[in-house]
Amino acid sequence: MKYSYYPGCTLKTKAKELSDYAVAAAKVLGVELEEIKDWQCCGGVYSTSKDEIASKLSSVRALAQARDEGHDLMTLCSACHNVIKRVNEDMRGDENFRTKANNYMAPDMEYHGEANVVHYLEMLRDVVGFDEIKKKVVNPLTGRKIGAYYGCLLLRPGKVMEFDDPENPQILEDFIRAIGATPVLFEQRNECCGGYMTLNDKELAQKRSTAVVDSAVRNEADCLITACPLCRYNLEVNSETKLPVIYFTELLAEALGIKEVK
């Protein structure tokens, strides 16, 4: 199985390990991630305004490129996933947006939302399967109590993202079980970490991230996993309560026994 892979700006810089472990683990699972040529930054947040066109074109370009390469587009960062999936939905369902976007870009072949946007976790669940992953685990993380932090962007809005039950998700808990560890549920797992607020109102970002980590600590998690570099930053740097925060792909690589050889 092969995907057109969209890493995004942060996975090429501050969060390189999120991507490197993902690519290496995918190989072990028989999945190839081929980076999209000349991708551009998704912008980090999707604007719901119907007259906001130009800021969504980088997503359209990546989507059209995946379509041309004949693959689904794979994302890993939660923010890229949210932006690109929602723009793809607009290209499918919003005729005014689709016409304007195609007019702007004047591509050889118009894009109409043909590519599917697949998050790495969806690939693990729906294509490889957690049972299959379990069989490939050589180093089960037995005894580790892990809190899955979903945040906002993978789940909401549920009717577009269709990732999991937006109020009671379980994909990351199933992932944690597949690698031999124990999932810990906590109330704040799908509430906001503070996001970009760290650059506007630091106190609000600190309040939000501390609430998330406190909730995980109360439920006796010994670490948190995330798919988002900004969530990781908030939970690690802005939270006043400290708990290790790890990318889920790092644990996957560890369980598959390839952490050292990435």
């Binding site: 700006c9 501050k14 969060a15 947040v45 800021s55 506007n200 690690e236």
Partner: peptide, 17 residues
């Protein structure tokens, strides 16, 4: 800026602000 701040924070804040 601090040494840990991800690029994602800056692009997102620019989009919003």
């Amino acid at each position: 800026l601090d040494s840990e701040l991800p690029q994602q924070a800056i692009v997102s804040a620019f989009r919003k602000y």
